[in-house]
Design a protein around this nucleic acid. Structure first.
Lengths: 116, 116
DNA sequence: ATTTGACTTGGAGTGCACTCTAAGGGCGAC
DNA sequence: GTCGCCCTTAGAGTGCACTCCAAGTCAAAT
């Protein structure tokens, strides 16, 4: 599929897709005869996974590290798993923090009284 | 209290405190005879509230708007309350998103199998 | 045949939220 | 009294993650 289709289906922009490829986040996107990018289904899957990492706050540098490990082969699986486990902890901590802050916010809203 | 004490107790840096004051986020911090900032307890409370807004992802520009409304007096209470309610919705949405993403992350971690 | 439009690249620019620097002032300890 | 340290200001610099631009290529439509 074209970069525009991939952009639409991944929720990223074509600009961002090129940027991600340039910094090594996306391995080997194919090119068609004209030299244009031709995304495959598994590129889309990878992109969707990357997007999850991003929206949960993983820094680009860490994602690059993860992508690099993936390219190196199956023997890096333990390190990749460890990265994800560490990231999971951060996400859990973030959810806990937000949940706490939410209750503070609710108290503050309550303190404004019942009027509109 | 001095800017260093206020920094320590608020979790921000002295640099950031000066920056916040400069952009109008902190109203009227007192000065002592030497012209040094002298923070009061209520400055600390305000700072802690600001910090909650920041850590929950409110943009600085919105916080400035909120601070500006506060300075304008009690008649802006409804608008301030509305801002907080809107922000609450965003925080709730963010928690929901993170919770969903967390389960994706968990599936991915599981797919790495039980080995270390 | 030429126009249109999407694509390619490397590199420059943007927005946000700090973060630091330079130049100078004032106070307590020795 | 002078040294060292923390403070002041305006303004410049940083890091992150995009986001856009310029110059050029190519295929399809008119």
């Amino acid at each position: 599929m074209t970069i525009q289709e991939a952009a639409q289906r991944s929720g990223l922009t074509a600009h961002t897709l090129r940027y991600y490829e340039r910094i090594g986040l996306i391995p080997s996107v194919g090119r068609n005869v004209s030299g244009h990018r031709d995304y495959a289904e598994r590129d889309l899957e990878w992109l969707r996974f990357l997007t999850k990492l991003r929206t949960t706050g993983m820094p680009i540098a860490d994602m690059c590290r993860y992508a690099d490990l993936s390219r190196q082969g199956p023997h890096t699986a333990p390190e990749r798993k460890a990265m994800l486990e560490q990231h999971r902890e951060r996400v859990e901590a973030r959810i806990a923090e937000l949940t706490q802050d939410l209750s503070v916010l609710n108290h503050k809203i309550d303190s404004y009284g019942g009027h509109a």
